[in-house]
Design a protein around this nucleic acid. Structure first.
Lengths: 213, 213, 213, 213
DNA sequence: TCCTAAGCGAGACGGTACGTCCAGTCTTCGT
DNA sequence: ACGAAGACTGGACGTACCGTCTCGCTTAGGA
């Protein structure tokens, strides 16, 4: 998440960085994204709105993307670790959390910007993969492993394929088709995974219709 | 596609517009998107690379977006309309064509640039959707409808879901996880779709293993 | 004088440079030097005061120094070439003209600014020497040569020494002691020069008292 | 000389100021003037070169000028009080001491900077007048008064005019014409003063040629 | 032997100006 | 009336210093 965040954890010499300024900058960033849109957000504008010098912004984040990543990270960072008793319930809970990210305009704007940044910058891509995406993927893996242990799924589930089947379609719809990223799509993806990796003797237990109708 | 293109079809008085200049500008745009990415493309840079005055660019397109939209239209590559006899063969043929796009470094760079552009510009997003993506999706729909007619698939296939299950995972891997977009993934997706929408009496006809081993 | 001026005499293609902008920039520069002093003059301030973009300033002058040098050139006031019939009268006329420069608050402020600029910039110093000071010195030399020809002065007058004796004390008082730069001082300097370089047989013709009492 | 020096003579409670830091700052200042020139000297650079915090510099001097004045004061402070037996010898001794100041590059750079500072700051101007200039002027007055008592000069010497005739020309040459401030000029000035204020019966005792040839 | 006060190096703070780049518009000349 | 060339105003970029303000840490004198 802090992919380009300039770290300074240890308390070295010198005046410590102001947490006030930090917060003011992040708040200003979010406000500006919401007010004028991601493209119109400038470092100069953020500094001015936050009542902060430009150098204070650059001291903490090397780029606008890095800053916005952290800003929005404050909103969408929480990823649940659901335990509803059924694999289907757990997966739906995770997907619903992800849905909320797509549905919130600010988060969606950030996500678009992140993808644009990832397309051109390997470091940003890595950071987003490990920080932003990684924790969501790990949550999915946890649920799937629990499902295998529980017997809801086959023992040889291809975790990576399942992951792609769950996240890929929503991502594609969000970025490419521009259609609604809604509960129906999420449910379809979950049921597709459940059917694909259903235990041998129970094919059809979760029918595609069962999840929607 | 020509959403913001400034038209001038009628042959008024004075020197007619140079078709050379037109082409040079579009070519320069595509080259620059490939080389430096959409964000780093500037009108100034396009004009310079095309050996053209800035006013000449603005005279024809009123924004960078409008220009890029038209440039994209020029590179909508031909998409095959395979008829191998089986739905699985047809889908694999389509996916293989798409694969080649991801695998070719130049195409991949362009694709990244397009996504970045889409993320920042609704008109570009629309243009890419209807032009670039649309023809690929239509090819998939044709194959799926033929499969339904042929009896390879259920009669009530959710075309949109199928489409997302086919393209989403590859797209996600390409942009987000950065992993290999290869035949294995393509085959898994095809088989997932075939199983999900298999006719009622023939579940398991195409096993996931069968498509890979 | 145009030491760092960026030349563009030939009329190439493209929009010609605006003479309006040029004048506005120079005027703004002079005004600002007068108002806030050389050190406090900034390119940003000049551009703002002139109602001009910064790039327009930098397109014409590479540096603040280069700009100020040309601005100075514009204010090289006319220097009289008096011919009162006597060397003493001519010198007093020249010194009175110089006096007016010291006495006028605006000119004095500008002069201070120039000296400050000269102390920090060799190119500016050169420009002031040749453009501002030079013509005044040449006027003094003309009068002295005429005095030598007329027989008011010795034939071997050390022109440079005379020049320093005339201008040095007033300059010193203006900048260093801060005392009044008045007619009394000017007259004393003139008479000192006349006595120092009086023809051999006429020492004391112009007594120091004679010029004041 | 310590015009803006911040005093702290009394030994209050708390840690006393480090004489090491003091010396390091002054040394760093002189080194930097010599190395990069007065213009390029920054408080930040001085502190860094001295291995000292910026606050330590500002605690002692409130401006760059104040600091540099003291720094160079350590070199050029001494003014002789010559007694060679003749007024001419005494004046030449004083002027030679002043000459050395103009000839030393570091001192000359400081002098330029001081004039620039004086041109804009009354407090600095006053401080330089009373400190830097004052002690030199007082030395000249002492010598002239001794000359009057001795009978080398008239009893009604205009001390201020004499002072201006001695220092003005050198100062003018240094700042304005940029020519050499050398012994020849100094001697000419001294002899001009001696002739101007020679006792009534002894005009020409010190001819201009006598002082040079 | 602690306490208090002021010093210390370090470096972050809100700012200002730098010199560059590009946006989008506006002239000029030559074709 | 087009073309290219390039100047125009405007404004964001990322950097360097400004002079001030904390930090944690000495380093003294007085309690």
């Amino acid at each position: 998440m802090e992919h380009e965040r300039i770290e300074s954890d240890r308390q070295g010499p010198g005046r410590p960085r102001s947490e006030e300024a930090h917060t003011a900058i992040l708040t200003a960033s979010i406000d500006l994204i919401r007010d004028v849109g991601y493209d119109a957000v400038t470092m100069e504008g953020i500094a001015a709105r936050a009542g902060v010098g430009k150098a204070t912004v650059y001291r903490r984040w090397k780029s606008r993307e890095a800053l916005v990543v952290e800003a929005i990270g404050r909103i969408v960072a929480a990823v649940p670790d659901p335990d509803t008793g059924s694999t289907r319930g757990d997966l739906l809970a995770l997907m619903t959390a992800t849905l909320r990210m797509y549905e919130d305009p600010a988060s969606a704007a950030l996500l678009s910007g992140l993808v644009a940044a990832m397309a051109r910058s390997a470091p940003i891509a890595d950071a987003v993969r490990t920080g932003f995406v990684g924790i969501r993927e790990e949550a999915v893996r946890r649920v799937l492993r629990r499902g295998m242990a529980r017997g809801d799924l086959r023992q040889d589930v291809d975790l990576e394929l399942a992951l792609h089947l769950l996240h890929g379609p929503m991502f594609y719809r969000f970025l490419i088709t521009g259609g609604p990223v809604d509960a129906a799509l999420a449910t379809d993806c979950v049921d597709t995974v459940l059917r694909t990796f259903a235990p041998d003797g129970s094919a059809g237990e979760h029918s595609a219709d069962g999840g929607r109708g």
